[in-house]
Amino acid sequence: MSVPELAGTVVIGLAMSAIFFMLSVGLSLSYGLMRIVSLDQFLYYSVGAYMTYVVTSQAGNFWLGLLTGVIASCTLALTVEKSLYRRIYEKGVMFSMITSYGVLLVGIGAIKYIWGLVPRPVMTPIVGHVSLLGTTLPVYRFVVIGLAVVLYIGLRLFLERTIVGKAIRAGIEDVDKTEGLGIDVYRIFTLVFLLTAGLSALAGGIHAPLIMVDPHMGLKIIATAFMIVIIGGLGSIKGTVVSSLLIGQVMAFGFTIWAPAAEMAPFVIMLLVFLIRPTGLYGSQYLRR
């Protein structure tokens, strides 16, 4: 592999990692705190992408589309959380998995009804290119990477410096003990659910110009997102960053060297991590319900 090829592959891998991180970090926090598998997050990912498509194509403003997608997804997520999740938080993981899969399928049906089955292109908001080590790369990929870095720093500061962030960290360790201090954990659950939905929508909107927006885009990325959550360790932001970087690079190099490896290698990595650290790379041994 030549140096230009190598540089291009690394940057493409980093941009993939950035999107994986945005999509997975909320899932990790949701499972860590509420012990739910929230498959409907992939609906918010799709809604984020479609709203970005609609506003970009109608108003010509990608960033406004991104914001619209986040707001629309958070509104939808708030409705789902208040009407459905409040009733099933106590019922175990399988219950949330099946219920949220139902929400996802209904949502996909609605997307098909509104926008049809044809994949839709989204205009790239920044069309420039930069030269790096003998290859030319779109500026947008660097913007995606930069955005993920900013989000990571923001999330770390939120969790470590704010009292709500500390309550989330405490809840990830032990929800009952957090409530035993006098904290209304359901309010914290709602907040984390909305945060996750907002991040999923952002990931969808940011991803849209790099792929074609289609009704099944959420379904296609489910396995990768959950592998990243599991490899990194449930509830660990640091773990999600490391596993996103790992899987992004593995997939980017896989596509460059031998395409089938891109789909297979993440599963192999997950199994290897399970053998060495069953809690994931940075999963807490103290995590309990």
């Binding site: 500390k166 960290r169 405490a170 360790e173 032990d174 003990k177 957090t178 807490s284 103290y286």
Partner: peptide
């Protein structure tokens, strides 16, 4: 009785 506090805090 378990004497568990938030270990990461």
């Amino acid at each position: 009785q378990d004497k568990e506090v938030f270990s990461d805090l």
